[in-house]
């Protein structure tokens, strides 16, 4: 399977990612209980909710990192939860980008190495990979920092590098889990500003998990997760067609 076989237009309803009636438990703890959600191609969707409500678990299921106990995960017209482990890993590398709250950069490597890494894993040539990394540095206001080790960066710089690394492979979907969670207000805003600006330019879809309403206000739309269920803006549980 190549990444290109997966590049299909979203279905007629415009849905790029869809989860239907997901259940996921960790031991006796139910994390998702009949959770359903559709994400349209190109939209920035905020997933809000109190801590422990199941937001991260939902994101991990949507991105094929976790397999749900029950329910369906669709991406671009395909059942993600029915792919083999290798198939899912390949799909994640080619079609998804990730930004988390902490600890996603390799501290011993330089900023440029970190950004080029996903391309190198996808067998892009060294030269092309580093050229693209360089272009992303400029785009995110990180000029001149390419040779720094990521352990030496400020929190805001590190999140911008993480953003560059997530987007360098031109993913269809960016999954961001509390990307501003460890930043102060102004730095967090700058990261959100950049994230929404560049993903709109790239036409990427964004699933943004945050408990912070000021961060969610950068999104086009929001849903709430409460006790493992997805709640829409009217307070009703989200249902999707089977």
């Amino acid at each position: 399977m190549t990444s290109f076989s997966l590049r299909r237009d979203p279905g007629p309803d415009g849905c790029l990612v869809e989860v239907k009636n997901l259940y996921k438990s960790f031991g006796a703890t139910p994390a998702l209980v009949d959770a359903s959600l559709s994400v349209r191609g190109g939209e920035v969707l905020a997933v809000m909710g109190p801590s422990g409500s199941g937001k991260s678990t939902l994101l991990h299921c949507m991105a094929g990192i976790f397999t749900p106990d029950k329910g369906e995960v669709w991406f671009d017209g395909q059942r993600l939860d029915q792919l083999s482990d290798t198939g899912r890993t390949q799909l994640r590398r080619s079609a998804f980008g990730f930004v988390f709250q902490f600890g996603q950069l390799v501290p011993e490597l330089t900023v440029s190495d970190n950004i080029a890494l996903p391309l190198l894993l996808n067998r892009v040539s060294r030269k092309a990979a580093y050229a693209r990394a360089e272009a992303w540095l400029a785009r995110l206001g990180l000029d001149g920092l390419g040779e720094r080790r990521t352990g030496e960066l400020s929190g805001g710089q590190a999140q911008r590098v993480a953003l560059a690394r997530a987007l360098v492979g031109q993913p269809k979907v960016l999954f961001a889990d509390e990307p501003t969670g460890s930043l102060d207000t102004l730095t967090g805003e700058m990261v959100m500003e950049l994230m929404t600006a560049v993903t709109r330019e790239e036409g990427s879809t964004v699933v943004l998990v945050t408990h912070d309403a000021r961060v969610a206000a950068y999104a086009d739309r929001e849903v709430m997760v409460r006790d493992g269920r997805v709640i829409d803006r009217s307070g009703a549980q989200v249902e999707v067609g089977r």
Binding site: A213, R214, A217, E222, S234, G235
Partner: peptide, 26 residues
């Protein structure tokens, strides 16, 4: 009355306004 759905509607309305204000800031 369904206070929970009134609150959900209020929440959505607040977030819409916050989105507009964020857009102004941007």
């Amino acid at each position: 009355r369904p206070a929970d759905s009134y609150l959900a509607a209020q929440r959505a309305s607040h977030l819409n306004r916050m989105r507009e204000l964020t857009e102004i800031k941007r």
